[in-house]
């Protein structure tokens, strides 16, 4: 199975999940109406979407430079500190505790959640908020995602951290790649194994859940669905030996910060304040020059 077939498989499963959820949670009439006047909706979200795309593009285009910067120039390996911190705080590492419950069925469930459930969780809010009567929630979502990536990725440059499975295969089981080795070709496209602090799986999932709570009046059913999924994704990252408990905590904090940014700022607003700041600086200098 190559990357192409893994991606095809993923697309098929996630598309089915999205279609089902759209029909049940959003409703056929509402989504049909939203598609009919898609144009203004897209226009409203164009700017935040462009910023998100820009952040992802920067990430994608600078991978080589970032790896060199992270590993050779900065080289802050915090893996031992994460391990020792958790040894200090807990009688037994939370990952070990979770893995004592390991069973083939549970592993299959968590692998499914980690890959398919996560993709669904991230994509569905786009559809749901797109179908609302105004685009405030969608803009919030996009800005919160952007904040997640921008902050998370800067942490990845600053810190090298390996997950439990890479740190010590005797203490922690590498369950994901044992069960589904090909998934690595997918995760390799997105990330390196030195980037586990904070957990972006956690932060993005929790962001979706927090936003679901804030929009509970519009989509009451989405709150429990996203809640169960998000918590499962969070648990799966530890159960599968990919993330430390600390990564998950940091991911949750990052989610809170991102949601705060998403709710209280807009791309237009940030843009305007940067401009007015620059203008005032420029104006100052201009007047200084005249004197």
């Amino acid at each position: 199975m190559t990357l192409v077939s893994v991606v095809f498989d993923l697309a098929l499963v996630v598309a089915t999940m999205l279609a089902t959820a759209t029909l049940v949670i959003v409703g056929p009439r509402q989504i049909a109406a939203a598609i009919r006047d898609a144009r203004w909706r897209l226009e409203v979200c164009l700017l935040p979407l462009a910023v998100l795309a820009l952040v992802l593009f920067i990430r994608w285009s600078t991978v080589d430079v970032v790896i060199r910067l992270e590993r050779r120039v900065l080289g802050n390996n915090i893996t031992p500190q994460l391990f020792e911190l958790e040894q200090l705080l807990f009688p037994q590492n939370p990952v070990t505790v979770l893995q004592t419950f390991a069973s083939p069925a549970l592993t299959e469930f968590f692998v499914f959640v980690y890959i398919y459930g996560y993709a669904f969780l991230l994509l569905f809010p786009f559809i749901a908020y797109f179908a609302l009567s105004n685009m405030d929630d969608l803009s919030t979502l996009i800005l919160a995602f952007t904040a997640n990536y921008a902050i998370g990725l800067s942490f990845y440059i600053l810190f090298i951290a390996y997950g439990p499975r890479n740190f010590d295969p005797l203490l922690f089981e590498p369950l994901l790649y044992d069960v589904f080795p090909q998934s690595r070709s997918l995760t390799n496209q997105v990330n390196q194994n030195t980037n586990v602090f904070p957990s972006l799986h956690t932060s993005l999932s929790m962001t979706v859940f927090f936003l679901a709570w804030l929009t509970r009046e519009k989509y009451p059913l989405w709150v429990p669905v996203s809640g169960v999924l998000a918590i499962s994704v969070v648990v799966s990252t530890m159960y599968l030996g990919i993330h430390w408990f600390s990564d998950v905590v940091a991911g949750t904090v990052l989610a809170l910060i991102s949601v705060y940014i998403g709710r209280n700022y807009t791309v237009r607003g940030i843009n305007r304040s940067i401009r007015s700041y620059l203008d005032s600086r420029f104006g100052d200098r201009g007047s200084a020059g005249q004197q």
């Binding site: 031992p80 499975r165 890479n166 740190f167 010590d168 295969p169 203490l171 590498p174 194994n193």
Partner: peptide, 18 residues
């Protein structure tokens, strides 16, 4: 401080290190 490769690169080295 003991340095070795992560389990992704060489699981046995990581076990010996453990």
């Amino acid at each position: 401080t003991i340095k070795t490769v992560p389990a992704d690169d060489d699981a046995i080295a990581a076990m010996i290190m453990s």
